[in-house]
Nucleic acid binder design. Sequence first.
DNA 1: TTGTAGGCGTTATCAT
DNA 2: ATGATAACGCCTACAA
Lengths: 348, 348
Amino acid sequence: MSSKRSRGDAAGIATIRDVARLAGVSIATVSRTLHSPALVREETREQVLRIVAESGYAPNLLARSLRRHEAGAILVMVRDITNPFYPEIFLGVEGAARALGFNVLIGNTGDDPARERDYLQLVHTRRADGMIVVTGKLPESWPDPSRRPIAAVIACEPIAGVELPIVQIDNEAAAADMVRHLIALGHRRIAHITGPLDQIIAQQRLAGWRRALRDAGLSADEALVARGDFRLPSGVAAAKTLLAGRRHPTAIFASNDESAIGAIQAIHEAGLSVPADISVAGFDDILFAAAAFPPLTTIRQPRRQLGEQAMTLLHGLLAGRPDKPHAKPARIVLPTELVRRQSTAPVS
Amino acid sequence: MSSKRSRGDAAGIATIRDVARLAGVSIATVSRTLHSPALVREETREQVLRIVAESGYAPNLLARSLRRHEAGAILVMVRDITNPFYPEIFLGVEGAARALGFNVLIGNTGDDPARERDYLQLVHTRRADGMIVVTGKLPESWPDPSRRPIAAVIACEPIAGVELPIVQIDNEAAAADMVRHLIALGHRRIAHITGPLDQIIAQQRLAGWRRALRDAGLSADEALVARGDFRLPSGVAAAKTLLAGRRHPTAIFASNDESAIGAIQAIHEAGLSVPADISVAGFDDILFAAAAFPPLTTIRQPRRQLGEQAMTLLHGLLAGRPDKPHAKPARIVLPTELVRRQSTAPVS
DNA sequence: TTGTAGGCGTTATCAT
DNA sequence: ATGATAACGCCTACAA
């Protein structure tokens, strides 16, 4: 800021220019040495590399990004990072991103439209090249015809009426699997604790419950459906409601692990035992499903792979022709696995 | 790329230049309208703002950052984002960062030196203005005298011999608190399951255990110390070891919640009951501490605030004189809270 | 094999 | 109140 070019002192060497000067070559040669070493004479190259090493030169990625029209970063937009379901998705995204040369920006929206808008803006302002949407909804201001289209991929939570590349599981099939598992154990009164039914995945899991029951010739008694919101307390409340009925269910299939754990708590509080009196099953296989008491039977989602694949898809979007006209967006469905633990048992 | 200036078609308007042209003013005026509206005549301003709105113009933040010598982003370096302890720290960082105009990059190191180095590099390459280190260690290549110093703040996990601003809790005091709680319940044989003892916080919690026992005139019997690594299985193993001794402890203080939950599992498997036979206490108050069976008595860390304060500190570093000579780095210690739940009870 | 120079989109300085 | 214009640091035709 002060003197024109008295840098190179204690502060270390900053720019490609300094390296060029010290190596006695042009800026272009330094750049080439770094990017296309084959084009540079060996002697020159060594000289440049030596200066680079000695000086600790690090390229300014902002300048590079500006020049190259790519931010080198992507954004993951998520509702609530403290929800134990999401971090492993991040892990997958981050691993793939790293391999592809991208950094990952975290966007925690808390379901707040203002924050969703702001994070979307990161792509418009070129701080991110694209985004992975795990919020199950589109920001209000999108799509915006007055702006260029955004590279985006949906992960885990489909969005109604939106055609974007997506990586997900088959929620309905997995839920039906679980219900079949309970039926196979002899259960006939199988309740379901739903998620928030404005979320598609909650609808799908409920549909899976219905389908499996009907396919088995059982009635999908709506009195056995209790609404929840995927959070633990809602599982407690829902289970209490279900237990209050005259003939309580012999099994409860909760739409995710948190509410299943809540249900278990409520059952314990009612002086009943899991699985002796009531079997309980969850969905997701979050870390603590295995640590619950009793360990929870659940559906394992390949979360890490979901994240990896989402990043891969996004990269494809970014690398491909941006205006590929009407190619149908990719849709990847990853397999789930029913994990049998001690919370489900044959009906007694 | 192709034609010189035929943009402004379907793709929408990209640059401040386009806005200037459409508004019939100079680039400088557009910039002023956006940053110092007071300097612009009202008519002009309105005209410019109208074009901005119509065109959906969004400034290129990469260009801005390049010009302003600031990335507008910070990096949070963490060992393992799937560890339920960390996401809430992110939440705090992210909230504060948002308020301060920064974006948050996530750096999951998995304890891998190569990844630590790469993430550190993000600051050198100007993609991040500074970093918050939650890994409990410095990347190998840091500090590097040949490069300019890095703005960094430590959160939660102190690093031996490193003088950087830090936000943390008093681990030793909190651990001692918990042990005193157990002593007050009448326990005399109180075991401790440690964390990995190369981590300072694990050492401090162990020290707190020792101190509280000695202060109470009890012996800190080293046979009651079982090594763990903060993960659940290590809690299982450690508890098994402790139960194998001739006179098993009446209480186990685990150095974090995960290992405490593991200990509870082991106790259950041994046919004993918590807290009737053995009381168990944890540390951290992660989400599932309350959902454990029985709900876990633990030490609550103000994780979100830890994150917020870390970001605040980092911002201070960034905003302040970069070369402030020997000001002693800030050190913030946040209060903890002992949360009594059902896993601890008076000795029987 | 190497150097020159234009430009990426902004911001900020200096004129006008 | 507004307009030229020079950086910011890098990449890449195009020349030499």
